[in-house]
Design a protein around this nucleic acid. Sequence first.
RNA 1: GCCCUUGUAGCUCAGUGGAUAGAGCACCGGACUUCUAAUCCGUUGGUCGUAGGUUCGACUCCUACCAAGGGCGCCA
Length: 579
Amino acid sequence: MADPIVYVAQRMAVAFAKVGGSLADGIDTAVRQSDRADAQVNGSLALAKAMGATPRDIAIKILEVAELKDVCSSAEVAGPGFINLTFANDFLARELVVASTSEKLGVRKVASSRRVVIDYSAPNVAKEMHVGHLRSTVIGDALVRMLMFVGNTVVRENHVGDWGTPFGMLIEHLVDLGETNAAEELSVGDLDSFYRGARKKFDGSEEFQIRARTRVVALQSGDAETLRLWKLLVAESTRYFQTIYETLGVLLQDSDVMGESAYNALLPQVAQRLSDLGLLTNSDGADVVFPEGFTNRENQPLPLIIRKTDGGYNYATSDLACVIDRVERLDSSLLLYVVGAPQAQHLQMVAAVAKQAGWLQSPREMVHVAFGNVLGADRKMLKTRSGDTIKLDALLTEAVERAAAAVAEKNPELSADTRNEISRIVGIGAVKYADLSTDRIKDYTFDWERMLSFDGNTSPYLQYAHARICSIFRRANVDRASVRKVIPKIEHKAERELAMRVLQFDSALWDTIEKYSPHRLCTYLYDLASSFSSFYEQCSVLKADTDDQRSSRLMLCDLTARVMQAGLDVLGIEAPEQM
RNA sequence: GCCCUUGUAGCUCAGUGGAUAGAGCACCGGACUUCUAAUCCGUUGGUCGUAGGUUCGACUCCUACCAAGGGCGCCA
């Protein structure tokens, strides 16, 4: 609990209770950041209303009973009854040491650890990963990391599209090409041309269509040879996905794959259990559930289709099987779905049915972590100039190339190896940060220039701040760990601003986790980098006036760098020591 | 037709019921014999889509409308 605002909030809550008694119960006593002081408390206005008193009088009473001597250098009533707080510098210094010497840099651990399942990335077998998979993968990875950071158990699940009617067509195409040739085409990552080849045959040949349909039946009935060919397709594809994940630097591994096919055996059980519960009804030949509150175009109840007229199951059934599996097998209490915003209604219906069936009882919850599209400069879905989807592979390669050009220009004396490594970190980081740094629910505009810029809210700017700190320690020839118990002396305005910012890591990270919104942490890290850059200009570390001042500033630098590094790390972004 | 999301500076975006709505880019003006100038400091720029309502107080909550995007029965 290093964050002074969090710390003082407890003292204020006590003071409100003392003044207001039971009338203070529903009152928002929150302490907030302020541009008038370090923090402000506004609850006195609401409490005054409840008590029928004047806000300023209440604020004065609150200040009379609030224990703030050891933490605030000033606490005064302002305006209509706001309380402005200024933290004492020695209090800030103590909290900095708490943060510096704590394992998680002052970040509170989760009160009770949860088992969280995160469903994200979800590419399709035998299809290229494209820019559409970027957001799910990057946002999901960041959430995994931050949930783990505060002490949750996180289960990653990559719900790859590895089942369904297209596989008849794909397997027949595989047979036509010959296994060796097909495996080669797939292994080099040319999944699109494989898929297109199959599609073209399917559209152009009736004979092929018949073969494909026959093959689907064989696949679903568990024909050994068909399954062998299917596994070949899946294995080559997942191997390729893994290369992308490694380039991207996300935690997903082969063992995290829980494809649609993994739930096949459960599908009849889902239907049976819904039937046993009396929730299943037959409608136009299909078995469906009508969850309450959903209507179609004609204002009729909207069904979730469990079993199609032809007896097959579809994705709603599979998604319900997922819920059952995640709750009953994994005992997960929080199910996160990092899935595009258009799926909102579908997921709401799945959740509604799962609740009706008793599979998703409070406090277990299912949360749709929805996100918008990646747009091009034309404000339409990002495409190549010729109108094709952009392969993720090509996008990441270009990011590293562009970063390399910038690094070569700005820091030409680096060795080739170092330059390549930094280019990779900067390029990939820029793409991920651009995706993470705006509110996920909105569409965002993809812009190379902006994301690779060293000005503004970009990963290179944050990485640069970190690298500058590392540079100071290299020059000073001081071991980073040696300054971590120094009690800093906060004197300069810029030091104070930086100190305040560093201490907010805890609340910034928690705010981000509670809203599943990585951009909040990005905003914080950008503010941190800005505060540091300003400090750096105004407060010389190596040429400090005194040894005390120097070690104090070194302590502040080290802590800033560690917070920056940890913050970037939970976003899935690396922080190089030089740039 | 119903439902969901979005609408904030010229552009890209932040903004937790609280005081005077903030950044970056762009524009203009400053600061490098200096711990990395890949930076910093300053100026300019707003009917917060529109109109009502709730509230001591609304960019924030509610209602209606406008605009853009998306969803709405056997694809996933």
